Structure formats: C-alpha cells, structure tokens
Simulated scan of single mutants.
Amino acid sequence: MRALSVAALAALAFGIGSARAAQCGDSPEGFKAWLEDFKQVAINDGVSPDVVDSALTNANFDPSVLAHDHGQAALQGNYAAFAARHITPARIKRGKTMLVAYAEPLDRIEQRYGVPGPVLVAIWGLETDFGSGLGSYPTFSALATLAYDCRRGNLYRAELIDALMIVQRGLLTPSQMRGAWAGELGQTQFMPSAYLKYGVSSNGGRGGNLIGNSADALASTANFLQAHGWQRGAKWDEGQPNFAAILEWNNAPIYAKTIGEFADRLAEP
C-alpha cells in the first residue's frame, strides 16, 4: 500500500469523528445509507458537491472486491515459483523492447531521480504487463466497498477522499478511473493518495497522466522510489542499498525480490 497523503490523513481523522460515517458492513444492506453519510463527510472535508455527486452517485457495493481482499495468498508462498510465473521469457523480451522504445524518457527520468530504466520497466511489467492490464474495476465502487468494510475501513475512507480529490484537481474524470480491485490506478498502479503525492509528468511537472501516458507513469514511479530513499548508483537486490525502497513500493518480500530479479534480467546485455 502506498503511503497516505496529508490530505488523506486529514480526511481520515474527520471520518473517524463522524459516528454515522464510521459504520461498516460486509454486505449490500446498509451500504447506500453509509454512502450518503460519507458524501457529506467528503463535502465537509472540502470536496465540491458536484464532484461528490459525479463520482459517487453510481458507486455500488461489490462483493467480488471483498472476496479478493479477504483471500490474498499469492504473496505468501514460494519465491522461486512466484518469480518463475512472473518473469517469463516473453515478458523479458517485451521488457527489453520497452527499454529501447522508451530510452529517451527513461534517460531523462534517471537523470532527474536516479532510478535506472530496468527497475522502472520491471515494475511496469509486473504491475500491468506494460500497461496492457490496468484493471477493469470502477475505482469508486471498489474503494467505497472497502471503505464500508469493517476490516480496514479507516484506511480506505482516506483513499476514497483522495480519489475524489483526483477528480477535483482535474487529473482524471470518474469514468476514466478504472483499475485494480483495491483502488490502484494507472500503468504502475498507484493508490489515490500516492497519485496525488508522487504523480508527475515525464518532464517534471506535477500531476501527470498515469493511466494514458506511460512516460508519466514511469516518472511518477521513480519519484516515489526517490522519495523513499532510493540511492543513485546503488544496486537493488535483497541485501543491497535500494532493496528497502522497493519494499516501500510493495512490502511483500516475494514481490520486491521479483522486481529486483526482473530488473537484473532486463539490465543484462
């Protein structure tokens, strides 16, 4: 999970203070009433009523989202088996092609943030198969379902506020916001809070289009890693200086090690 933004933490604190909005459940019953309460929380926290209506009016409870959230086990297993499934010859070949195709922006990104192209392309490939699998879950339904759930509702209420802020700042429209079941967006899968905090364009401007612009997504990923301690010129495998920054990207050691190995393979001549 990407780090929460300051705005999200403020929204979280406000949400905790609202007895009605803090109610939770794991079935559709009560969801719509909870959502109406949450709309007022969002408005009180500075989101415009128009944005709230446009984004949340059609948000629905999605039981498949909870099924995913309650059944995560893929990152608990055997590293060698996990890596073998995800670092395939075809993916390595395509990753090397992407390194060539995006050589110019990757070079600019490395100069600015210190993160080499193979690391960024490895993350890109593992997260969305180089942008070909962004996810099809409507972001506001997914986040609202998780915000209503009793397990981690506080966390996802904060992310839901930040998703609304993405719309309010004009970065994306509600209809554009489709992604993974947990609310991640874009070609390298940022949570809304991280999108607001680390999203940049490939030329260094704030915001960026992390869904439609691959170079922006790569630059934003580098910005995140730099902000979490990436050391220019250092290596990234387990036990090396930059492995800790990759763990900040995804705190599952199996996944972080797979990113490192994939980057190693992409960096080979």
Rank of each mutant, 00 (worst) to 15 (best):
Q76L: 02
Q187I: 06
E36A: 15
S201D: 11
K96M: 07
G205P: 06
D129H: 11
N58W: 07
S193K: 04
A142F: 07
L56N: 04
W249A: 03
A147M: 10
F243A: 11
A73K: 10
T145R: 11
G229M: 04
E36I: 11
A147D: 06
A263S: 13
A74V: 02
F82E: 00
R151E: 09
L266P: 08
A142E: 07
H228G: 14
R265T: 11
G46S: 04
A163L: 12
T57L: 08
M98I: 14
G183Y: 05
A103E: 12
G239H: 05
E36K: 09
A194I: 01
Y156A: 08
A19T: 02
L185F: 03
P28F: 14
N44T: 07
R206G: 13
V52T: 13
L196M: 09
A222T: 12
G208H: 04
M165P: 09
P28I: 10
Q176A: 09
L126P: 00
L171H: 12
S18A: 11
G71R: 00
F38W: 12
F140D: 13
E238M: 03
G233S: 10
S48I: 08
A73V: 00
L35A: 13
G186A: 11
V115N: 05
T188I: 01
T258N: 10
V41M: 14
I87D: 02
F262R: 02
N60T: 14
H228C: 01
T57Y: 04
P63W: 09
F243L: 06
V51N: 05
E159P: 03
G15W: 11
M98G: 11
I16F: 09
E248P: 04
S202Y: 12
E110I: 04
A182T: 05
T97K: 15
K96N: 00
W249R: 02
V41R: 15
N209K: 05
A80S: 11
R232M: 08
T188P: 03
P138C: 09
S54P: 02
A222V: 00
E184N: 04
T173A: 10
A90M: 15
I259C: 13
F190H: 06
N250M: 09
A59H: 02
L126D: 00
G233C: 11
Q189H: 10
F31S: 06
V47I: 14
G170R: 05
G205M: 07
G15N: 14
G30K: 06
S175A: 15
Q189L: 06
Q187D: 02
Q168A: 09
V51M: 06
I109F: 05
I211W: 03
A10S: 14
P253S: 14
A74K: 03
D62E: 15
T128S: 10
